[in-house]
């Protein structure tokens, strides 16, 4: 994982220097570091002349942002209505057992992060699991061990 914070100013500089750029900048930072480092949030607040409290408020509001480093592979288990009906609970539990972490946590080796999400817009293939940008549909508990290796 990249931990070179010297790129932060150049990421911020890609956007117009106004308050409305806040979310775009945070998205780019999230993409670069896989989370929002404190330094990056401070630098953004300072550059855009937006109070730090507002940056923190936005950063904690959206699920797309993480304030703690995430693993290389982000596993998102959909627990939206359709997936819930089709058994996302057991899928989630199986991932928890397999990775020995709870949703919102990251494995100590920084390889995997587990998350539960509302709906990923693929209800027809429920229950759905996303690993990074890839979708996996009609997931069965028996497939999970294999899925953890994939993605």
């Amino acid at each position: 994982m990249k931990q070179d914070f010297t790129t932060i100013p150049s990421i911020i500089a890609r956007h117009p220097r106004k308050a409305s750029s806040l979310i775009m900048i945070l998205q780019d930072i999230q993409k670069e570091f896989n989370y929002l480092p404190e330094e990056a949030m401070r630098k953004t607040a300072e550059t855009l002349e937006v109070p730090m409290s507002k940056v923190y408020s936005v950063a904690t509001f959206y699920n797309a942002f993480s304030l703690v480093p995430r693993g290389e592979k982000l596993i998102r288990v959909c627990v939206g209505t359709a997936c819930h009906i089709r058994g996302s609970k057991v899928i989630r539990e199986q991932f928890e057992n397999e990775l020995k972490i709870k949703p919102g946590e990251t494995t100590p080796d920084m390889k995997y992060s587990l998350e539960v999400v509302g709906c990923v817009g693929a209800c027809a293939m429920a229950p759905v699991v996303m690993i990074n940008d890839k979708y996996f549909g009609s997931v069965k508990t028996s497939r999970i061990k294999q899925l953890v290796g994939k993605g």
Partner: peptide, 19 residues
């Protein structure tokens, strides 16, 4: 001052200072 703001969302939402 803008020293405090809403933090988080849904059930976890609270009023808190940054970080």
């Amino acid at each position: 001052f803008s020293a405090i703001s809403a933090v988080g969302r849904g059930h976890g939402k609270e009023i808190a200072p940054p970080l």
